[in-house]
Simulated assay, not measured.
Amino acid sequence: MDADTAVRDAIEEHWRASESGDADAEHAIYAEDAILHYPQSGERFRGWATIRAQRNGHPADRHFTVVRITGSQNLWVSECVITYDGRPTHSVSIMEFDAKRVVRETQYFADPFPAPAWRAALAEPEPGP
């Protein structure tokens, strides 16, 4: 198995574990000194244990739908829809790897919004996740 296939498999397992609530498998992808960035809220979470504690403390019922995973070598991007208590939020996760583990992840979140009428003639509907 080549390195890119191994990383893609690890990312896919991370998202499966996130969906199933398996905290051990979800966080196995992170290095001990990994850093998680949330630029929109101005937060940074330093270290595997802190990342895990932050996610495990989330009060919402969460579900994860992976739309696409793309990348190679040390840089990978996952496009997901994360549903919090029934409300979907689009998310982009940028993972940077050092060998086999994530050393840095940056996540961006965006709520859906209605399309403006002025461009309706130019657009087609986006397929669902």
Score class of each variant (00 low, 15 high):
R101Q: 13
Q107L: 10
L75C: 08
A31P: 06
V92I: 15
A6C: 02
S20A: 14
A25W: 05
V77F: 02
V7L: 12
D9V: 01
E96M: 03
I29P: 02
G57H: 03
R62S: 09
F45C: 08
H90K: 07
P114G: 08
A34W: 01
D33M: 01
Y38K: 00
I82K: 00
R101P: 02
V66R: 02
D98G: 03
D22W: 07
R104L: 12
R68S: 11
W48G: 09
R46Y: 13
V77E: 02
A17M: 05
A60L: 00
A121H: 09
P125S: 08
E126M: 14
A49Y: 05
M1H: 11
R101L: 13
P59Q: 03
D61E: 10
Q40H: 04
D61H: 09
S20G: 09
I35Y: 03
F113A: 15
I51D: 02
R119K: 07
R44Y: 01
R44V: 13
T70A: 14
S41R: 10
G47E: 06
A10E: 06
Y84E: 12
A117Q: 14
P112F: 10
R52A: 14
D98F: 07
C80G: 05
A34I: 01
D4A: 13
C80E: 14
D22L: 06
R104S: 14
G57T: 04
R55E: 10
M95Q: 12
Q54N: 12
R87L: 11
R68L: 10
M1V: 14
S91T: 14
F109E: 09
R16Q: 13
S20M: 06
P59I: 07
W118K: 07
S41N: 08
Y38G: 08
T5V: 07
A120E: 15
A115V: 15
S72G: 09
S93D: 15
S20I: 00
A49V: 05
A23H: 06
G86I: 07
P127W: 09
V81G: 06
E26H: 06
G21A: 00
E12Y: 04
R44D: 12
D9Q: 10
H58Q: 11
G21Y: 01
V92R: 09
D111T: 12
T50A: 15
F45P: 04
A110I: 02
T106V: 13
H63E: 11
F64A: 12
P112L: 02
E105G: 00
S91C: 14
Q107P: 00
R87G: 07
T5F: 05
L75R: 08
E96L: 03
M1F: 10
E96N: 07
A6Q: 14
H37Y: 14
S78G: 15
P39S: 10
A123W: 06
